[in-house]
Design a protein around this nucleic acid. Structure first.
Lengths: 344, 344
DNA sequence: TCCTTTAGTGAAACCGTTTGCCCTTATCTT
DNA sequence: AAGATAAGGGCAAACGGTTTCACTAAAGGA
């Protein structure tokens, strides 16, 4: 049987309340008593029971990270790993624990959220990315639970979010290729129902328009955030009669697919096709060739999401206003866009 | 104010005890009462308070994953991602939540473990890999907390572990290269104080000995589980007067480093250097060229670790005997070891 | 018909903390 | 010197469940 606050109290010759107050540094405890109690705690190896504490304080010092439904595959993406790493680092620093939760179906997903939040097991949640009409967002909003969304919600512009300026990022990426001498530039996009896909596509279009370059519809290919998509997009694009000399690719994983396909077909990067993509996951610099990528500060994104969530939790009710925080990005130029060899 | 068991009881015209029993499917509740109570729960939107439940049941239905100290870098390794993915999947299936915990220093690490276990916030822990003389292992053992170690402990052979037969795996990898016609084979190892490094090195030696092939000391290079190590190992080895024609590499991430270096120096894989490595992380097939790798079933490893831990928790005390479970591995042959071009 | 089972439920104690309120002393005020 | 104030602690009631025990009513046994 574990040693409780009462055991300490008895041994120190004080009441349980006093021990509790020592624990929370209550001002009305004399230095002497505090000393004495702490000694006893040490001696007995006392550790406060977190559950009991949570029960009465109605706060768990725990947040949860909700892995999106198709987590099974996506989870393999280093992107999420980095995100979680940032979240955990900041949460731990702030004295919070992080619970990981995934559901294999949408129903399960909602069930898990409901169990965790309604069951008062966690104080708030982080959503790793934004889908359209996300029922989880609706649920959280409806119940007034604190949460941070990584990304941007079209339906709910006024919730707590941490995001990249994806339009600008894509603009920058595209401009970079243009600067390197490319004129025929394609775009490999993600699922059209993800806000991030839309934003990046828009940025690409803006940059092309600004430079008065033509954008042919067949140069824009949609897919998933998976390498297979990149592979497919690549074969489609390389078979076009007038094919682009460079590609803006929505995600590094997708670029890996493109790269692999090109390698199989004996094409050279960047000579035959320049590439720049997004996210700059830790492996972007390790591929052959290393991929130029927009660094969106994934770790930082997670770190900030965690920070804001905890702030929201702690100021809940106190007229807390949700924020939309934008994390700056920057282009990392590597070999995949090294120099232009425009072909006519 | 959230709706409690008492509210339900009042509304349903029964006692709280009855509601509680309905919740836990107690056999001695009439179908009629059960029906009635459940309706009321539904109507009121009742959700049991998990903390309260934990307090009295002295069980949290939560396990924690302890990220090793230098997690900051290692965490970027897809290996851990896969592991965690497996752990979470199985835990959730068994009705357990997973808490992620990392400490930036060894002291913090132990503090975290102690807080979580002693504070009764989690029922058990999973250690992601085994270090020599791990103080965390000592702590857990000393207090009798259930835990699973992924890997193998030299000091404590009789604890619950899930592992790969790394000796055999390395043997297989090496034999494969030999079968492909290689005779001069080197080995890029990990930190010497990790059991896994030792075991794999041993397997390599055994295979070489079995085939009566020479192993030159300079063909064995130690490093970290990081790509930089691979890069360094590569440049060292390629500068040897009589260099190997193939390499067994202790981890895929390290192979990426090797690959990158070779690419920079315009060497071809597998023509100039055959490579086979371990773990088969999801990116192994995406590199250029794709890496032959021993698939150790990372996900499965995590899944099993979780499963065994939960078993141990549930049978704790009931004469539970720790197990050492070995997950089978298999070689995935890809381009990096495609066919031998032995050089004299 | 009377006694023992058995099924179904309620009462109350308890899990380990926190905290509002009250009660002592010791220290000031005037 | 006596009432007021302040400082330091203790009591007991929550927090939201679970579980032992006791109780009632119906059923079964002799």
């Amino acid at each position: 049987m574990a040693v409780t606050i009462k055991d300490v109290a008895k041994m120190a010759g004080v009441s349980p309340s006093t021990v509790s107050r020592v624990l929370s540094n209550h001002p009305r405890i004399s230095a002497e008593t505090s000393r004495k109690v702490k000694d006893v705690m040490e001696e007995l190896g006392y550790h406060p029971n977190i559950m009991a504490k949570s029960l009465v304080s109605k706060t768990t010092n725990t947040i949860c990270v909700l892995l999106p439904k198709p987590a099974e595959e996506l989870f393999s993406n280093l992107f999420f790993m980095e995100l979680i790493r940032g979240i955990v680092a900041q949460a731990n620093r702030a004295g919070y624990d992080v619970l990981l939760s995934s559901g294999s179906s949408e129903k399960e997903e909602l069930g898990a959220v409901s169990r965790l939040l309604n069951g008062r097991r966690v104080d708030g949640a982080i959503l790793l990315y934004s889908r359209k009409d996300d029922p989880v967002v609706d649920f959280l909003l409806e119940h007034g639970y604190p949460f941070t969304l990584i990304g941007r919600s079209e339906e709910h512009p006024d919730i707590l979010t941490v995001d990249t300026d994806n339009v600008q990022a894509a603009y920058d990426a595209t401009k970079h290729l243009i600067t390197m001498g490319h004129e025929r530039i394609g775009f490999v996009s993600g699922p059209p129902n993800l806000v991030v896909s839309q934003d990046r596509l828009l940025g690409y279009r803006l940059a092309m328009a600004d430079s008065e370059l033509e954008v042919r519809p067949e140069w824009i290919v949609e897919g998933e955030f998976l390498q297979e998509s990149g592979y497919r997009a690549m074969s489609f694009i390389m078979n076009l009669p007038a094919r682009p000399t460079a590609l803006v690719v929505v995600d590094d994983m997708v670029s890996f697919g493109v790269l692999r396909g090109l390698h199989e077909l004996k094409y050279k990067v960047p000579d035959d096709l320049g590439i720049v993509s997004f996210n700059n996951i830790p492996l972007s610099e390790l591929s052959t060739p290393p991929i130029s990528s927009i660094d969106i500060g994934i770790y930082h994104l997670g770190y900030t999401a965690s920070q804001l969530l905890i702030q929201a939790i702690q100021n809940d009710g106190a007229g807390y206003q949700p924020v939309r925080q934008v994390i700056p990005h920057r282009l990392i130029v590597r070999e995949s866009s090294a120099f232009a060899v425009p072909r006519k």
